[in-house]
Nucleic acid binder design. Structure first.
Lengths: 173, 173
DNA sequence: AGGTGATTAGTCACACTTGACTATATACGT
DNA sequence: ACGTATATAGTCAAGTGTGACTAATCACCT
């Protein structure tokens, strides 16, 4: 949740905006960095507002319904820097999602498992290709490009591991 | 949540046991594969019991309070195999935890960021070493060893990425 | 026989997250 | 002028996950 707070504060730091814009930006540009959903963003905005890290001004545009425009407060900026520093020193400890299945692989015939892993391997290679093809560029967020490289590296690592695992299974008596 | 169901069904498939044993086994042997907490395990057991995938028999031992012993049902075994197959073909899509901070790194002085990343690098190397040193061995769950290798590979990948990133930051005008 | 700490066994209130829903405004074709 | 599709802006019920708590038993010392 700290990560998500950091994200919202970071976006509001560069520009005041309302919930919709924030969610839109995340969906369009940061889908590879965060999977926060709209409803979560709104509820976080509400919480951050209540705790004084951001403040809302009601904007009346024509005869539209009123919208809230959120801006970061000084307290919010402080929190932003604190969370940013925390995030930068934080070790990534992966719990790869699919590894519980790997634990129980002996419950299926070896050849069937090899088939599934090959399927997974192919899908992962496709996904990797989609990252390699599209050179990303989020205007003022240079760091995003580094995260894309990060994920490419992780996919390659996963692919190597799968190949090695399949090889080893094949070699089993 | 499917992953967690798979884990519980898998453990009950090899042996009927109560909630405490399940949680204990996860904490002791599978801390590197799942981070499911005790309360979650109990609530899952309850749900799986209600939906007929497992069944509970009350065990009265001496004058202790009664405990529930859970066993997998035929429906549960079917579900187990279904989830296992799903898990094996499922692509891992990493959203590395710390990458939101990376996105905003330009908000801090370059040298400060390099300092933090070096700290993170050192911590990750330590963690990697702890995985490399202790040769793991979970008796009847041979697949666990493969997951350990998986995580070692991911740590190495992360380390490479950090080194590369730090290098690039250093090289910036 | 009494105290202390670990082990066994489990519950519960609370926080977080999201799918599905509401509702207005704007664009655009016909 | 009218439908209808899309963008804008947000809410809410329901599900998931867990820290903190309760409570009995056991091991061991003194």
């Amino acid at each position: 949740m700290d990560e998500r707070t950091l994200l919202i504060l970071g976006l509001l730091k560069s520009q005041s905006q309302h919930g919709y814009q924030i969610n839109d930006f995340i969906e369009r540009n940061l889908g590879r960095v965060s999977d926060m959903k709209k409803a979560t963003a709104y509820s976080l905005l509400k919480k951050l507002n209540e705790s004084g890290l951001i403040e809302a001004t009601t904007e009346q545009g024509g005869n539209r319904p009123a919208k809230q425009v959120y801006s970061i407060t000084p307290a919010g900026e402080e929190k932003f820097y604190k969370l940013l520093r925390m995030s930068l020193v934080q070790v990534n400890d992966y719990l790869p999602h699919g590894d519980i299945g790997i634990c129980f692989m002996d419950q299926l015939p070896k050849d069937e498992v090899i088939g599934y892993l090959n399927e997974r391997l192919a899908k992962t290679e496709e996904l990797l290709a989609s990252y390699e093809d599209v050179p990303p560029h989020v205007e003022h967020l240079h760091g995003v490009n580094l995260t894309i490289r990060h994920r490419i590296a992780l996919f390659r690592c996963d692919i190597e591991w799968m190949k090695q695992t399949i090889e080893e299974l094949r070699a089993r008596s």
